[in-house]
Amino acid sequence: MAEIICITCPKGCHLTVDEKTLEVRGNSCPRGEEYGRNELTHPVRMITSTVKLEGGRFRRLPVKTSQSVPKEKMFEVVRSLDGIVVHSPVHVGDIIVKDVCGTGADIIATRDL
């Protein structure tokens, strides 16, 4: 039995996951079941960061991945944003990088700037 804490929402349910059957207990909602199973098979995380912004009110534009990416790719994804420069105006949801590091997720803007 693996004991993990669900991080999908602030409730933070204490889950137990059976390593063999991948049966999840302790979750208060279905999302916890998915999280518990993923965590033992292929853990994923959302990533948020910033990229350089030119011509805008501020020097950084906040961005995020459009979906969760494999946990072990977190550093690679953030590193890949280093050289990127975006020009104002940008809108929430604009795609900044397509299919970042081959994860299938895009990097999208999270603020109008």
């Binding site: 602030p10 959302m46 948020t48 960061s49 995020k64 929430v92 999270t110 603020r111």
Partner: peptide, 24 residues
């Protein structure tokens, strides 16, 4: 605006937003 991480709005919008998105 400075809380660029995810985790806002799960109760209110039923989706997970970053701080600037929630404010937006």
């Amino acid at each position: 605006n400075q809380c660029i991480h995810n985790g806002f709005g799960l109760h209110y919008f039923k989706e997970e937003l970053s701080g600037p998105e929630y404010a937006g």
